[in-house]
């Protein structure tokens, strides 16, 4: 089948670097992957096209790039799934990372973030003889995160990283979780405290689900970040706006059956955090002028008493 590609090129040799779009047409087998099509371009159309690939079987994590705006491993992406009727596909390097040339990005930023979470086991003791033994279940639990092949795709499309390069990022946080959950690691509390307190830590994730959607290996980094939040709270880290936000939300629904937006804003900012409280005032006044301020006394669900009983019922079960 005919494949039409529009590829974003970058040549660092030109002063300041030169970026341009280049179009290619190649004929490939209908079962081909996007990588097959790109290799065909490189081998038969244009030997100057720079790209990275190795295993062609979604194990090495080398061929991450954006296809029609979304980061993918191109060896795992079939041409027909993107362009069933021969539509032109747009190929760009991954986002949020420094482009070296054409479709090749530097993974320096990626590995800096990975290194930030001390991605190695720090056991609290050395067994007197033999090896560390752990249960099957405890290791099976870690499989989701251990499936990570470090391709950088989640970082490419992370919507927080886009505005804040200090964010630890989805891949590194999923890696951090892999060690907080490992029964052999002796630094769980310190790790959770650091991830909780640090700028760019677990509370800066927006829960946008991009990393879950784009990860080619089912790591679901955002789900791991949510587990880290829960673990951090359980370990006694209750000093963040994020914690107060979640608590306030949970309790608002418990009390009213629905959300009390005014209370949520106040609780999350911190009632005694005067600068942040004052910060809310102009927004509140503007909303009031337009007749859209959330009610100060919250609406309650008609069944708020019943919802309270449900809370008791579910909370009682987990005790």
């Amino acid at each position: 089948m005919q494949v039409s590609l529009k590829v974003k090129r970058f040549d660092p040799a030109e002063s300041g670097g030169k970026t341009w779009w280049q179009e290619y047409e190649v004929d490939v087998h209908p079962d081909s992957t996007v990588l097959d099509a790109l290799i065909q371009v490189r081998e038969h159309e244009d030997g100057t096209l720079a790209m990275r690939c190795a295993c062609r079987a979604s194990i090495c994590g080398s061929c991450g790039m954006r296809v029609n705006g979304t980061a993918k491993l191109v060896c795992k992406t079939r041409v027909v799934s993107i362009s069933p009727n021969g539509e032109q596909m747009i190929i760009e390097p991954m986002g949020n990372q420094h482009v070296v040339r054409d479709l090749v990005v530097s993974l320096d930023v990626f590995f800096d973030q990975i290194n930030r979470v001390e991605p190695y086991l720090q056991p609290s003791f050395v067994p007197e003889q033999g090896e560390y033994t752990v249960s099957n279940e405890s290791m099976e639990n870690l499989v989701t995160s251990m499936n990570c092949i470090m391709c950088g795709i989640c970082v490419s499309d992370c919507t927080v990283f886009e505005v804040d390069s200090n964010f630890i990022g989805p891949a590194a946080l999923a890696k951090a979780w892999r060690f907080t959950e490992d029964p052999r690691d002796g630094k769980r509390d310190e790790r959770l405290k650091a991830l909780n307190d640090e700028d760019g830590g677990i509370w800066d994730c927006t829960r946008c689900l991009k990393c879950v959607e784009v990860c080619p290996k089912g790591v679901a980094p955002m789900d791991r970040i949510m587990e880290l939040r829960e673990a951090a709270i359980e370990a006694g880290n209750t000093n963040t706006h994020g914690y107060h936000h979640t608590e306030s939300f949970y309790n608002s629904v418990k009390k009213n059956g629905r959300l009390d937006e005014t209370r949520l804003a106040i609780d999350s900012a911190g009632m005694f955090n005067i600068p942040r409280m004052l910060d809310l005032v102009p927004i509140g006044l503007a909303a009031m002028r337009k007749g859209k301020l959330p009610p100060v006394m919250p609406h309650k669900s008609e069944d708020h008493k019943r919802i309270r009983e449900l809370y008791d019922s579910v909370e009682g079960e987990s005790k």
């Binding site: 829960r207 949510m226 939040r229 829960e230 709270i233 936000h245 979640t246 608590e247 939300f249 949970y250 608002s252 629904v253 059956g257 629905r258 959300l259 669900s301 008609e302 069944d303 019943r306 919802i307 449900l310 809370y311 019922s313 579910v314 909370e315 987990s318």
Partner: peptide
């Protein structure tokens, strides 16, 4: 008579509670 969905925030604290609601 329905409750709030939890908006994913309530679920951070207690996923099952969200599912029950």
């Amino acid at each position: 008579r329905a409750a709030c969905t939890g908006a994913g925030v309530l679920q951070e604290k207690n996923l099952k509670m969200g599912d029950v609601l």
